[in-house]
Computed example of a mutant assay.
Amino acid sequence: MAAPNYGYEKRQKELAKKKKKEEKLREKAIRKLSPSSEGLMPGDPETDVASLENEAPTVPTTPTKNS
């Protein structure tokens, strides 16, 4: 009986992981380009432009290194 090829199995896992990540990024880019898609809610802060316009910008309360 032949010994298992763990390197091959690991490479296949890595390729599957990479493919899944690329697919997620592609779907995310498609969602950004078409905000009127069915899966998004109008009141969702990530997609609702009106809510972003009405919110005041946040200012950090702790001093930064540069200031």
Score class of each variant (00 low, 15 high):
residue 38 E to H: 05
residue 4 P to I: 10
residue 53 E to L: 14
residue 45 P to N: 00
residue 58 T to I: 09
residue 34 S to P: 00
residue 36 S to D: 05
residue 30 I to T: 12
residue 5 N to A: 14
residue 62 T to Y: 10
residue 31 R to W: 05
residue 58 T to Y: 08
residue 5 N to E: 13
residue 10 K to H: 15
residue 48 D to T: 02
residue 55 E to R: 07
residue 5 N to I: 11
residue 42 P to M: 01
residue 66 N to G: 07
residue 60 P to G: 11
residue 14 E to R: 13
residue 47 T to P: 00
residue 2 A to I: 08
residue 62 T to E: 15
residue 54 N to W: 04
residue 21 K to L: 09
residue 31 R to H: 10
residue 8 Y to A: 15
residue 5 N to Y: 13
residue 28 K to Y: 13
residue 29 A to H: 04
residue 55 E to M: 09
residue 10 K to A: 15
residue 46 E to W: 00
residue 15 L to R: 12
residue 32 K to I: 12
residue 23 E to A: 14
residue 13 K to T: 06
residue 35 P to Q: 07
residue 12 Q to S: 08
residue 11 R to Y: 12
residue 42 P to V: 01
residue 33 L to T: 09
residue 60 P to E: 13
residue 15 L to S: 03
residue 24 K to T: 08
residue 46 E to H: 00
residue 52 L to V: 01
residue 25 L to S: 06
residue 56 A to W: 10
residue 23 E to Y: 09
residue 31 R to T: 04
residue 62 T to P: 03
residue 59 V to R: 09
residue 19 K to I: 04
residue 9 E to L: 14
residue 21 K to T: 11
residue 54 N to K: 11
residue 18 K to R: 11
residue 58 T to M: 12
residue 27 E to N: 12
residue 64 T to H: 08
residue 37 S to V: 08
residue 23 E to T: 09
residue 20 K to T: 05
residue 39 G to P: 00
residue 54 N to G: 02
residue 35 P to N: 04
residue 37 S to N: 11
residue 13 K to E: 10
residue 65 K to Q: 14
residue 12 Q to N: 12
residue 51 S to R: 10
residue 48 D to E: 00
residue 7 G to R: 10
residue 7 G to I: 05
residue 45 P to I: 00
